[in-house]
Design a protein around this nucleic acid. Sequence first.
DNA 1: GGTGGCTGCCC
DNA 2: ATTCTGC
DNA 3: GCAGAATGGGCAGCCACC
Length: 478
Amino acid sequence: MTEVFSFYNVNDDTSINEAYILIHSSNSFTQFSYFVNVCEKIHATTSKNMKVNILSEYLFSLNDESLSIAAPFFSNRIFPRDSIFTLNIGFSIIMQVLSEIASLDPNQIQQIYLRHGDMGALSEYAVSKKHMAPLVKQEALTLSSIHDRFGRVAEAVGSGSGKGKKNILKGLLITGSPLEAKYLIKIINGELRIGLTEGLVEIAVSKAFNQELEDVRDAMLVSGDISQVALLAKRNILSTAIIKPLIPISYMLADVMFTAEEIINYYQKPLICEYKYDGIRAQMHKFKGQIRLFSRKLADVTYAFPELANAAEVTKLSSSSSDIDVILDGEVMAIQNGRPLHFQELQKRLRKKNVTEQIIEAIPLIYVVYDIMYLNGEHTIRKSIRERKEILSNILFTKPIINSSYRVVNSAQEIIVMFEKSRDTGHEGLVLKDPDSQYHPGKRGRHWIKLKKELDTIDAVILIAEYGHGKRAGLLSD
DNA sequence: GGTGGCTGCCC
DNA sequence: ATTCTGC
DNA sequence: GCAGAATGGGCAGCCACC
């Protein structure tokens, strides 16, 4: 109980009292019904402070296992980020299962769905009308039991696995109350929709475990996994979340502007300008000779691009022949005879499981490196991109890995020239970068600006705004 | 063994 | 990915 | 200005079905 009191003392908001009673009037916080109760309370208030207080009290009350399960649910995730699991349960399977539970034919359930407009609400309705019950008396749903069954769904493969998955889902839904069924579906769909943003969840974690919000956010930048970060916060070891090779970090993202003039007017200074490559964003890690490639969502896609992993083995500093450890940011491109292939060609390789010699030859790839986040034991994300480019220039890449070329531009005219050149070469447009900016993982901001539209389609944009006929405007611009 | 529906993940 | 919207 | 929600095209893998 001492922990409870110390927690209570660090919060002076009066709404804590309500949240405190809410949490501690029950005796089993790991029950799913309790999770649902918390969600409903969070949904019911429009006060962000109140949402945070309710959530932080709840997170505080959970044991480690339940915390690591529940935290991702609040961030619209099911499995931790580095998990290869997916449920493969979507709209269709849910509709089938709900129609069976409610003994309504699929058409009827579709109609009801259209009225609700929300799968969670539909699930609540269907389970309230259920014409079946579990064959044997079931224990009440807990975070743990739900997690176990999600795991079994994710692992189910082979003939008959579809039916098995539906049965597990059906069992989950009819075991709990209609309200629990509503939230189960919300979780499965990855849409809790209770007015919680990722940012509020981070605040709740910091309050629950009495950690500095900045420390929680910093840990999230490199971990990206709210489940891990919540546990680290609870153990007071957030500082151990550091950038290290073979573990992916979030990507820095670009903002959009529509004209060269807008960009020049905004920055009023020289900018780093490089092509916008129409490929697949990829993070390359090299550590003690091991190579890993990660996709946009940080899935390990090394297997899909063996020639890139091979070429990375010999990456080294130009000043030394010894092996280096690096984390690189760049774009995987399909390219033939010096010209980019259509994105669809690249897509064929991304998800191909059996990467044959034939397909490697048919769709040649390059990896264009444009940033570096780590080198030989030190992260480089706090250095300016001017410095990071300098570091990159001292690394020797071997084909098909290349260092992205860039120019420094200081006028709209220079940008337009580069843009035309980019399009002539078959690229999408330009990315302009503030030379003084750090690498901000997971952030979309005005440090990187993409310019992909033709500069003379501005008239079409105005048509969209005035008449609201987006599709027609698109035709006019052709 | 072929086809079509479904899902997730690229853009 | 783009576009719209609420805070 | 930011974050979330809604939207769209295309691909491979997978399973159900014939």
